[in-house]
Every structure is written in C-alpha cells, then in structure tokens.
C-alpha cells in the first residue's frame, strides 16, 4: 500500500508556531473507533484539506478541534490553546461553519449575525456594523432583513459561513462548506476563503469535492477509518500515489471487455475502470502509450472514438488510497 509517512511531510511544515497540532488523537463511539491516533500539524495562514469517505472521522476531528467533543486519548492545540483544558480561550480564536447550516430560521440574516457577534462579546455596536459588513460581502444585503426560512440553500450556506467569520477568528473550521451549492456560489465561496487566508487566517476544511481541495488546500490529509493514510501537497500526493492513466472512449458497438483484454499487457497491475463506453487503465509512466494502445485496439478490431493520457487527479489519489471514489462514497448518508 502506498502510504505516505505523515511524519516526513510534517517535519517540513513546522517552521512557525502551528495553528493546529494534534498528537495521537483518538475517539470511539461505543464500539466504533472514529479516530485512531491522528497526528497533524497545520501551519498558520494556510488552508488544510481533510479528505476522506464518509465515516472516515473527518467530522469527529473537526468537532474535537472546535471543543464540541472530548477526545478519548491524545492532545490537540488550536491557536496555542489545549482543546480540553483551555476550551474557553480557544473558542475566542475560532469560527465554525458546519455541514448543516446552523443558522436560526426564525431570525433574519442580520439578527443571526448580530447575535453571533454579541456572543463573541464584540459589543452591540460592533456586532451590528460587522453584521451589515458581512451581509454586504456575502451578497445578502437585500435578504438581510428577512427571516432565514425564506432563504435558498445557497443563501443559508453563505450566512453560515458569514457567521463563522464574524469575529475575524484566526482559525476557521469549515465542515463541507460547499456541499449542495450551485457552481457559481461555490466559486464565490472559494474566493472568500482565499481572501480570509490572504489576511492571515488558517482554514481547516473538510470536503467531499476533490477539485475543492485541489483548488484551496495548501496541504491535504487523506483520512480513512480514523487514520491519516497520506498527507502532503496536492502535487506530492498525485506524484507519489497515482499513476498516469490511459483513457479510451470506445465506439458505440465496441465491447469494453475485448478492449480491456487487448490493453491488459499495458497496465501496471492496478484494477482498470469501466464506465459505459469509457475505459481507463493505469499505465504508470509508459512513453508511446497512445500509439501502442491504438495499434493494439486496431489489431483487436475494437472501434475507438478517442484516446488520451490523463495525468493523475486527486480523484485517482483518493481511489488508490481508499479503494473507492470520493464523491460516490460521500454522496450517501451523513457522517
């Protein structure tokens, strides 16, 4: 199994005082082990992506770091404060936006943000001006005086994220912030996150969207069955884990099984994938692969529409490491 040693890549990351450090973090629910010995270091001013299938322990980890849950073993510090012993001071340093938009439906957008500001003890006047500022920023100005129950899903998500930013916290936890958003809202949310990071915040992000992790995260940890099984930058993961893939689009009448047989010798031993008339074979580094594939398929009399070499994506990384696709596995029940 191509498992990266977390410690290798961590050693390089520690230069400044880390925003988040965990050591041997473990948590069980009854007889389910949600986390087993998670070690992470997140440098300040960066975006750290947590990738993993459902039930991998992502949400459990975020809940422990946000002081919502106590670990069974191990330690964690956020913004320099211990999650168990210094929860009160830690909470002044964080903002949390959850998988489910935790905003009050019966309050207006403005009232929601003002309430959160007051509960951060910003004072009434600051809480109000900050609420106005964020409503404007998140394109909710017009909706700001309406109860949230009249909002669309995307508007609620934006308000939820705004609530996490009210106190301009140095550390922000985003648990699947764009799940269920339309593409335009996703991009504008990404831009907001990038702006916050540019201003110095640290973001810990869990996501089921690999393109989101690819775009936002400086470093990514892949987590499965409560363990970190790989950690590094997006490029590091792609290079070390996944191979180049040969992707062939077959003609309408062509039999994928025959095509796979013809290409079998080119594979590097990994399971090929078939989706309708598209087959994809992991070939490692194999110069001349396209020409060879065309020749072999031609000899086997398999009609083809297109042949291409695909550079590895995070999706491939994820597939290789966990044995299933990220978005498929995450689309099911909530964690």
């Amino acid at each position: 199994m191509q498992t990266l040693q977390p410690s290798q890549s961590l050693a390089r990351a520690v230069s400044d005082e880390p925003a988040i450090v965990t050591q041997g973090l473990s948590k069980s629910y009854k007889n389910v082990r949600a986390l087993t010995g998670v070690d992470l270091v997140v440098p300040p001013g960066s975006v750290f992506g947590l990738l993993g299938p459902n039930g991998a322990g992502k949400t459990t980890l975020v809940r422990i770091l946000a002081t919502l849950l106590k670990p069974d073993a191990g330690t964690a510090r956020v913004a320099g404060y211990d999650v168990v012993r210094e929860g009160g001071r830690l909470r002044t340093q964080i903002g949390v936006a959850g998988q489910y938009a935790a905003v009050d439906e019966n309050l207006t957008g403005f009232e929601n943000l003002e309430m959160v500001g007051r509960l951060y003890h910003l004072g009434g006047r600051v809480a109000q001006s900050r609420a106005d500022e964020l409503l404007q920023h998140f394109d909710l100005e017009e909706a700001g005086r309406r109860p949230v129950k009249t909002y669309s899903g995307g508007m609620r998500k934006r308000l939820d994220l705004a609530a996490a930013l009210v106190a301009r916290p140095p550390v922000i936890f985003l648990d699947e912030p764009t799940t269920g958003l339309d593409p335009r809202s996703r991009v504008s949310l990404w831009e907001t996150i990038e702006r916050r990071v540019a201003e110095g915040s640290t973001v810990l992000l869990t996501t089921q969207y690999l393109d989101e992790a690819d775009r936002l995260a400086d470093r990514i940890a892949v987590i499965d069955h409560g363990r970190v099984i790989a950690e590094g930058t997006s490029d590091e993961l792609k290079h070390q884990v996944a191979r180049e893939r040969l992707e062939v689009v077959l003609g309408e009448g062509a039999d994928p099984t025959v095509a796979l047989q013809a290409l079998a010798v080119m594979g590097d031993g990994q399971q090929p994938r078939v989706e309708g008339q598209v087959i994809s074979v992991s070939v490692g580094r194999r110069p001349g692969a396209i020409v060879e594939a065309v020749r072999r398929l031609d000899t086997a009399r398999v009609e083809i529409v297109d042949v291409a070499i695909r550079r590895p994506t995070l999706n491939d990384v994820f597939f290789t490491l966990t044995g299933h696709k990220a978005e498929e596995s995450a689309a099911g029940e909530a964690e």
Binding site: R63, A66, T67, L68, G88, R89, R91, T92, I94, G95, V96, G98, Y100, A101, A102, V103, D104, E105, V116, L119, Y120, H121, A163
Partner: peptide, 13 residues
C-alpha cells in the same frame, strides 16, 4: 437537531 446548539457551543459564550 438543527445544529444551533453546536454553533452556540463553539462560541466563547
């Protein structure tokens, strides 16, 4: 159920 208690518990209140 709607996660508001989690929101409150993550705030320094």
């Amino acid at each position: 159920r709607k996660g508001l208690v989690d929101r409150f518990r993550s705030l320094p209140m």
